[in-house]
Simulated scan of single mutants.
Amino acid sequence: MVWRSAGVSWRDGVPGLRWDGGRAGSRVSALGYGRVIGFRAVGERRCPGARGNVCPLGALVGGRSTGGRCAECARLDRAHSVAADTLLDDPRPYRVYLAWFGPGLVKVGITREERGDARLLEQGAVAFSWLGRGPLMAARRTEEVLRHALAVPDRIPYARKRAVRTALPPAAEREGEVAELYARAVGVGAWAETLERLECEVHDHVAAFRLDGLPPLDASVVELVPDGVVAGRLLAAAGPDLHLLDRDGRHLALDTRLLSGWGIESAPAGLPVSVPLGFGDGQEQLF
């Protein structure tokens, strides 16, 4: 039986790896901090499809693609997302949030209210505050107004998020920066009239991610390769990223979106890492 990874999921603030076993169904493996894990990639990396549909082409996907889908399936997935503005008649309430990933790394976004802070955990937000709640289009309009008024991006690359996780300021400074940005946001006019403004309450995910005491990052996994092994002790998890300490004492980051489409088999946790790694100086090496 070959299982295929569906990435990290966050439930009740706890990370787990989702797996698709085809006819065998799906499952979630709990990720316990301090646990030693190991796996290898097998076969070829193929598009897993989109929206519950199998890729009709069974297309091969490049090893460095974090999207993990072929162009056609990526378009299908995007077309049915909130970000594409195609769900205009969704009656469910949405929330606008202010997410903080590190000093100077801030974005405004929206999420369905029923999801709670799951979207923030999935993005690796270190701290956040809700801004408002209301209908989808009111939330979307307010998001756009605030994004331009505060001069913040609609997305932040994960490489930049990883780079600051090991040197975060104290909790009081994190809270203060979010509170200051919240005050600027509520001072912006032109919020949608049907959006209910929410009080500032800063939520911090450092404990959930286990980021306190995280050592400096030595390298990141660039891609998986056939029979390539990733193994180490789990130090932390944030968004789709796993932070591992390998047998040589290196702190490595693995973006689990790189696992999508690969067959994954367990491997002895003591094996050396044998996939391409990227370093801060732009060099790359295969161990």
Rank of each mutant, 00 (worst) to 15 (best):
R45H: 07
A50E: 00
G67H: 15
V164H: 03
L17F: 10
Q283L: 07
D90H: 13
S9C: 14
G58E: 03
A267G: 00
S9A: 10
F128A: 09
L277A: 02
G104A: 00
A99W: 11
W130P: 02
G132H: 13
E196L: 08
L245A: 08
A139Y: 10
V42A: 13
A99V: 01
L271I: 04
E223C: 06
R184C: 03
A192C: 01
V54W: 04
L271E: 12
V164S: 08
D218V: 03
W262G: 00
A41N: 13
G21D: 05
P268G: 14
T111V: 02
Y94G: 04
A74M: 07
G34V: 12
V28P: 12
R140T: 07
E113I: 01
R197K: 14
E175C: 05
L17H: 12
G102E: 06
V273M: 03
H243T: 15
G232W: 12
L146C: 09
A190S: 13
L57N: 10
R233M: 03
V108A: 01
S81H: 01
G189N: 14
W130D: 01
R119S: 11
W10H: 09
L198W: 05
A183I: 04
G132N: 03
G187R: 14
R119Y: 04
E144D: 09
Q283E: 11
R40V: 04
G68I: 11
D20T: 06
D117M: 12
H80L: 15
E177P: 05
P15K: 01
M137A: 13
E223S: 06
P91D: 10
L136G: 14
G7A: 00
V275R: 07
S26I: 00
G52N: 14
R92C: 00
G134M: 09
T142F: 10
V152F: 06
T142G: 11
S29L: 00
I264Y: 13
E113A: 15
E180Y: 12
E114I: 02
A50W: 05
Y158I: 15
G189P: 13
D246T: 13
A185P: 09
D248Y: 15
G282H: 07
L211G: 13
R4H: 15
A190M: 09
A185Q: 05
R46D: 06
D89F: 01
S260N: 11
L286N: 11
A167E: 05
P157G: 14
E44L: 11
V36G: 08
D204S: 07
Q123S: 15
G134L: 00
G116T: 06
A84Q: 12
R155V: 15
E175T: 11
A179Y: 02
V225F: 02
A159S: 08
A190L: 06
L258G: 04
W3R: 09
D89I: 07
G21W: 14
